[in-house]
Amino acid sequence: MDYLSRIGSDAWALFKGFRITLKYLFSPAVTVQYPLQRLAVSPRFRGALAFHEDTCIACEMCVRACPSRCISLEAKRNDKGKKDLLWYRIDLSRCNFCRLCEEACPTKPKSVHHSPHYELLFGKREDFVSEWRRGKSSGVTDSCVWRRYLPVPDRPRAKEEKPG
């Protein structure tokens, strides 16, 4: 008798489980076909770091804020006593995506900030490092990795929110 009631209760549990499966069989899928469809990331998303040389004042606040020495730069004082940025280097292999550099940056709009780019693929270790360097002839040379492949990220968050 125990044996039979066990069969009955197991069959009922099986039915309850399959009822849920059946319910979701006919409801819309929650997944997307990734390379063809993409989910939008939120405005605050912390993706690859982006750097803008036009506003940077070479104050080294980001270098000091970074917990893993991901950012380095070199600057030289010019005739007016102001700092001229010589080069600015971001090593994404060390980046923790923690937003501390962005919060430390005092310029408006931010010179260094997280971009929404999350598809980061690098073939070599050297590719992780992206560097901006003041060029000799043309003034500014752009050599950031993500700028080579992707459009330059704009700076939406400088207006959107105050650093917490």
């Binding site: 939120s42 605050r44 998303f45 912390r46 995506f97 923690c98 937003r99 917490g164």
Partner: peptide, 17 residues
């Protein structure tokens, strides 16, 4: 997703300061 909208990260938040 809620956390991503709030602080921009999905696993390592660094949200509470």
């Amino acid at each position: 997703d809620l956390f991503e909208r709030l602080c921009g990260a999905r696993l390592t938040y660094n949200y509470i300061r």
